[in-house]
Amino acid sequence: MSLNIVFLSVAVLAVLGFILGAGLSYAARVFAVVRDPRIDAVLSELPGANCGACGYPGCSGYAEALVNGSAVLTGCPVSKRETRQRIADIIGQGGTADTITDKQVPTVKCCGDDNKSARLFQYSGLEDCRAASRLYGGPRQCRHGCLGLGTCVNACQFGAITMSSSGLPVIDRDKCTGCGMCIDICPRQVMSMVPEKAGVQVLCNSGEAAKAVRQVCRTGCIKCRKCAKVCPVGAVSFENGPAEIDPGLCTNCGLCIPECPVNCIYGTNLAG
């Protein structure tokens, strides 16, 4: 076998590679896209989870929108205050108090587990709240409470939600990043965002009248207003149906908790 064929193969591949390489480097120059170096700097500050909670395709999309000025600093609910401050410095926006807010976490406004909330029928379909809620409005008699099939647990990208033994989601506020994906996916809209420091909460989502609530759930809010009467700062309101405690006014004194006749007020981090 002659050596010629070896040299020829090497030469052909080298020439082919050279032509293609030259073509690519020329194309890279012709089709060059000018990219703002600040985009990469912002991107390196962002969490990088690509959760999509900001509404942009991934962290890089959000970083681009931030630099273009079409997104606001609070768009990423996952980022912390210090992160937003650093991003504000990079893109030359003065970070002010209203653009840099405290972390929000979801809360499940329902405490009617299997023992307290009556069933409408035995459900044995897909293990998914969205599917269950489409079947005659779900297997629970209460139309507003948690269905307990754990769709939010699967939706959470950060493993911050687990199901308790009684069948209600429990949120780990340390692991939670506040992206809000669980809130969007819940067919009952039983979750809502509260500031991380919120302590005392009314865990009922039902705006029905007292009699209707009592018929389906032993621990649903009956709007008796005893909590409002005992509250020293007037943080309890009944505007949207069930009692609601304004976390901005609440002092976490916990006086309302023993007052509730149906035990649907729960508290953590109580003062005093």
């Binding site: 082919l16 590679g17 293609l20 073509g23 690519l24 194309a27 089709f31 060059a32 896209v33």
Partner: peptide, 21 residues
């Protein structure tokens, strides 16, 4: 080996063009 070379370069080129256009 020649086809791999061509395909790899082609994919790179297509990526460049799409990113621009």
């Amino acid at each position: 080996i020649a086809f791999i070379l061509v395909i790899a370069a082609l994919v790179q080129f297509v990526e460049l063009v799409i990113r621009k256009s």
